[in-house]
Amino acid sequence: MLFGLADPFVAAAYLGCMLMTLVGLIYGLLRRYTASDDITALDRQWALKEQEVENEL
């Protein structure tokens, strides 16, 4: 019995949640500076439009 959970499928879910959280933490740390952080003119244009609609609302 793992952590008092007799059913291995439930124990797997319990552990799996923590494991996937760990995977997410490691992924974020490893890729902290890997991907591009550039903003294109298209991104800025999109954001201006979005801001305009938000402000109108």
């Binding site: 949640c17 923590m18 996937m20 959280t21 995977v23 997410g24 933490l25 992924y27 974020g28 740390l29 890729r31 902290r32 500076y33 890997t34 991907a35 591009s36 952080d37 550039d38 903003i39 991104d43 999109w46 954001a47 979005e50």
Partner: peptide
């Protein structure tokens, strides 16, 4: 996702995101 600045910002949000969802649903 469209309001995110870049891929890097998405990657950096993953650790906090997984931890938050673990707490909020688990």
């Amino acid at each position: 996702f469209m309001t995110v600045r870049s891929r890097r910002e998405l990657d950096r949000a993953v650790p906090i995101g997984v931890f938050f969802i673990l707490l909020m649903t688990g």
